[in-house]
Design a protein around this nucleic acid. Sequence first.
DNA 1: AATAGAAACCTGTCGGACAGGTTTAGGAGA
DNA 2: TCTCCTAAACCTGTCCGACAGGTTTCTATT
Lengths: 233, 233
Amino acid sequence: MQQEVGHGLVSDAIGAISRHIRAHDLMPGDRLPSEAAMSKELNVSRTVVREAFRSLSAMRIIELATGKRATVSQIDHGAMSLMIEHGVHTDQINIQQIYDVRRTIETRIVTLAAIRRSDDEAAALIALAQAMRDAKDDASRLMELDLAFHIALARASKNPVFVLIVGAFQGITRTTWPIGWKSRAAVRSQDAMLANHADLARAIAASDPRLAVELMSLHFDESIGALLAAGMS
Amino acid sequence: MQQEVGHGLVSDAIGAISRHIRAHDLMPGDRLPSEAAMSKELNVSRTVVREAFRSLSAMRIIELATGKRATVSQIDHGAMSLMIEHGVHTDQINIQQIYDVRRTIETRIVTLAAIRRSDDEAAALIALAQAMRDAKDDASRLMELDLAFHIALARASKNPVFVLIVGAFQGITRTTWPIGWKSRAAVRSQDAMLANHADLARAIAASDPRLAVELMSLHFDESIGALLAAGMS
DNA sequence: AATAGAAACCTGTCGGACAGGTTTAGGAGA
DNA sequence: TCTCCTAAACCTGTCCGACAGGTTTCTATT
């Protein structure tokens, strides 16, 4: 009936499970067959099915939990984050390249966000920017708020792919963010960075895409400058 | 020494292996410890180590092969492609959203490509555009050439993250491309599409970023139009 | 009809086994 | 001494059986 091409039973099983999801039109949250059932249906050992499930789970396509059956998963940037981090750690990607992509993406995001944001999202952005100011002395907390700010922005664009991509850079950003922040301390531009975020939030709330784009460009110019000043290759 | 937080031994093992790669500064192609060695070092069964390896392999962080030891992997969009496809098939992402992202990314790509392309890359793009014309009657081959064209463009931008993102959309594009092509048949705009690619290749070769951006915009306007005409929601 | 408890089901992890494929170390030959 | 080949050692892929928890479902009782 079905002869997969991937060499190895596990690859076949991964394909079969993916096809099962599509064939049955499973939506996030829906349950998949048990390992035993899959194993019987595909005529392979439970070992093979388990490794296939694990693989799908690593890609965040399904979700595993002890005792429960596997479920179809909501898209999530966790796996992408790890991949990007791996690329950077193995010198296949450098930070400037990531910033170039982020600038490209996030410039578009703010345009869309300014147009499509709901009132709740606008309020949340302003609140986030304010929280950042309040957390000025707690670098770790500030960083998380910054990351949340950019994700909130992406969400307001109403395009989940943007959320995915912005999220994909979070992992590696957690590594580089402190470098940029410390570098700013030397240049006394921390306040400017905080003000920039507040301005940006207001521009989104005011539905002013042009201003939002300008502020975001400023933000990236400044961020890259801070990183370079810190000697980031 | 090391107490991981993840739920389950496999998560711990994944973390340990990732850390091992970083701690030893392993580069793509370098070999990892054998399953048995890992299993002994982490005090878990080979089963657990194998599932961890499989997970990393699914994210294309390592590469597995029978008999050989696992090796650190080159970054690759295979996993991302599957994730995006999953998002689309489960109605979490729609095609227009993907096209919006692609337009954003690829507009930036052609700017960079026009500036940074090597002579070889320029020649390859022109050759690819010509090959597309020659394959006009073989939709399947034409599609693969089209995909290769966009990847070549991304490569010429000299930013591997762009290559990664463009590659991530290849999987789902293979599903939707034929729809757009057929729709074009009705409108007799296939030739225009082929000419557009040839023009684009020439603009890159001529190091004309402005023209390249304009042509790419045109391409996307036209592509999205074709998809909409075909009733793609 | 509601509910508590038990039975059935399910996943996580372990250990052992064996069929191939790959690497390595050593020895034979040049 | 150097090259080349072969056999041993190593390694991964897959299967099986077992058992400790966690979850779902069924049932009997209230």
